[in-house]
Simulated assay, not measured.
Amino acid sequence: MKKILPFLFSFLGIFMFSQQIQSFETIFNDKISIRALEIYDNKVWYSGTDSKFGFVDVKNFKNQKQIKLSEKKLQFRTLAQNKDSFFAINIESPAYFFKVDKKTLKSEIVFTDTVKTAFYDALHFVNDKLAFTFSDADKNNDLKLAVFKNEKWKIFQNQIKLNEGEAAFAASNTNIASSKKYLWIATGGKASRILRLNFKNEKIETFNTPFIQGESSQGMYSIDFYDHQFGIAVGGDYTKQEANVNNIATTTDGGETWQIQASGKNAGYTTCVKIKPNSKGKEIISVGDQHISYSSDYGKTWKKISDEKGFFVCKWVNKNTVVLAGKDKISLLKLKF
């Protein structure tokens, strides 16, 4: 009986796993690293290394196209959109802000940041007319935000100072999130905090978190909010990917206070988290270099649903389909509920 039980539990685990995943298919392969995704016109749009930008049709995988935004070998880890265009910014200086017309796919550089410390970690549209992007700080540790308003990009003036060694991770273009009321930015490194911009008065508040922090490789890597109150943050330490203490947290008061969840009971280092649309925050998917995980109780407990490696970013396509991307691939995951 003692020999049968481990086998039985293993079988049940596989059975539960097979019940949860309906299909898992790679729809795109290339020599590329992808850390930013958008969904538009039934297509998955991506930006990545070697200035590559393109799409794969979710309904017809053979319908795909790729272009290069620059002759230079730029590395993109950001991508966002409004109703007319896509926008992407390369990491490292000079940082070029590219605008890509959705109809023609013609691109142009609409803003350039030549500061040596420019390193844009995430780009996020609040609505069609308002967007924000966040760069690592300069030597003075000033919070560096750029804002898209009135069809133009400019530096967003503020008085916020970051701590020494506090920055962000360009891991999945998801350390910025928003609701109609707030914009949130997650920092990491030697300090891992939440910065919250109130759209009404344009003031920024800062909130400490109990998240793992203190080393340059630690902190929050990704956040998502369902509304102006409930949000989730994930991350960890990319140098210790199995470490799973204080690397998931949730908030119910708009980011002012955070509660650690599943500490010591999750799959470890995580680069992207996405709340399922219309789930009120109850259902959440996350990915890391070593796993795909799922929560059905507001992030309190997690189940690793796949050991597939090499994914950095994920995004919901619809209520039961998730697109994932990372090292050399884009895949489509369909879940059973």
Rank of each mutant, 00 (worst) to 15 (best):
N266T: 02
A168H: 05
A36K: 14
G13R: 10
G189D: 03
K181R: 15
S135G: 08
K62C: 03
T26H: 14
A137C: 09
L324N: 07
F76Y: 11
E202T: 11
L324T: 05
F17A: 14
L145V: 10
T117A: 12
P6H: 09
L130M: 04
H228V: 00
N90C: 00
A88I: 01
L183Y: 10
L5F: 13
A95P: 01
I14P: 00
Q81H: 00
K144Y: 15
K139E: 15
F53V: 04
K190A: 09
L143M: 13
K334N: 11
S279C: 10
K276N: 05
R35A: 06
Q259T: 12
K319W: 09
F230M: 08
N208H: 14
F207P: 05
N63E: 10
Q290Y: 11
K319S: 15
N29D: 09
K152P: 01
G189Q: 06
W316L: 09
N163C: 12
I330A: 05
F9Y: 10
T252N: 12
V234T: 03
T271V: 07
L8E: 09
I176V: 06
R196S: 07
I212W: 12
S51I: 06
G188P: 07
Q75N: 13
F97W: 01
L333K: 09
T26Q: 15
F15D: 04
L332G: 02
L37G: 13
S217R: 13
K329V: 03
A243L: 12
S217P: 04
Q229V: 07
K200D: 07
K3L: 13
V44L: 11
Q22F: 15
F337A: 00
N175Q: 08
L162F: 14
Q290F: 11
L8G: 01
V313I: 10
Y221F: 13
K315H: 14
D142K: 14
K319D: 15
L162M: 14
F230S: 05
I275A: 05
E215L: 13
P6I: 02
V126H: 09
S179K: 14
Y226P: 00
I4R: 12
A131W: 01
W302T: 01
L79N: 04
K106N: 14
G255A: 01
F86K: 06
L5V: 11
F87W: 02
S47C: 09
I330R: 10
A122G: 06
W302Q: 01
V245I: 14
T174I: 04
N266H: 04
A262H: 01
P94Y: 02
G268H: 03
A146D: 15
I232F: 02
D84K: 10
I260M: 03
K72L: 07
L145S: 13
K161Q: 13
S263L: 09
T26F: 12
W153E: 11
A186P: 07
S172T: 07
K203L: 13
F169W: 05
E38L: 04
A95M: 03
I285C: 04
F87E: 01
V56K: 06
K31D: 07
D30S: 07
K99D: 00
L162Q: 11
S331C: 03
Q75P: 00
A233L: 06
W258R: 05
S93E: 00
D142R: 14
D224I: 04
F97E: 00
I285V: 09
I160S: 08
F207H: 14
S172R: 10
E25I: 07
H228E: 15
N320I: 02
